[in-house]
Design a protein around this nucleic acid. Sequence first.
DNA 1: GTCTATACGACGATAGAC
DNA 2: GTCTATCGTCGTATAGAC
Lengths: 187, 187
Amino acid sequence: MVRTAQDDQLVPELATVFRAHGYDGASLALISEAVGLQKSSLYHRFPGGKAQMARAVLSAMLEQLRESLFADLHTADAGNVRERLDAVATGVGEFYDQGRRWCVLETMSLGGRLGPEGDRLLAELAAAWIAALAAAAQAAGVEPREARRRARDVLVELEGSLVLARVSDDPSAFRELIAEFPERLCR
Amino acid sequence: MVRTAQDDQLVPELATVFRAHGYDGASLALISEAVGLQKSSLYHRFPGGKAQMARAVLSAMLEQLRESLFADLHTADAGNVRERLDAVATGVGEFYDQGRRWCVLETMSLGGRLGPEGDRLLAELAAAWIAALAAAAQAAGVEPREARRRARDVLVELEGSLVLARVSDDPSAFRELIAEFPERLCR
DNA sequence: GTCTATACGACGATAGAC
DNA sequence: GTCTATCGTCGTATAGAC
């Protein structure tokens, strides 16, 4: 089986649609137009339909997270944690377009429409975030328990600030979090 | 025009459905069954359809918030802020079923399907929360600017912890927030 | 003001030609 | 592996009797 250039871009483009519209808002018509494939072609790649497309997006995100953020922060030591965390903060800020984009962890977790496997992926994604941030805090000398608590709180505030940014049309809480969380994790 | 007993319960029952399923998940079939009225009867009460029903729910919540929480916390003084905040915390914990329920601020703000008026209500709801909590912190002696910041952070963490509770099926962050936010606002 | 019945489009999903 | 064409269902929304 030959992978075309289109194939490499398929899941990322799916991700773009789901991130922009949420699970319910991402209709097959919208997806079809965005990726440049007819609905029937999408079903050829994803026999499980829309739910499977969503799971593919989550799965790719999890893998990506583990290859970059995870690996990066888990191998950090006291000497380089801060700069690595600063780089992560910059990346996260861009990923969410400084608070103007949504988080799939939030928008795809409504109603359990992705099936048990989808719910598992969502939970694993959240756990991966916390584990990575906690590892960084630990590398900076914070006790494991406290490190984990701070990491969880950062994720909580990430999700919450994105919700507030959407509702209030004001991403300042998100931006402040991005600016502060590396320091908060380490101190 | 006579208001029946049903009328008084109509919006609260609508709220229950929207809170449990989100805006997209709350189909008219579901709503119809929950409130015990046929779809056409619902359209008699809400000619604007589902979006108007959702706005009615938000409007009622805003009014409720201003009558209870808002009035309660805005009239607090240094002597009774803490106990009032503790009461609020208990109420909030119950309102969200200790982290197992969703927040309409989050689930109804996806996609702007409620129209401009709906978006305004959502923003006002968030602002009302922050204003009320900030007033309490101020009554406890915290500077206005700092009070506002703490209030915003509490709302951010409220939303975020509810998202994390849903995704991870673990409401511990929410419960900790409920236990701690009165103290955090005042100290 | 509530009902039964229905319109009608959009939805997710399939069939089958190429 | 992609397409055109279509299916059945469910979505929101109306018409009109009572």
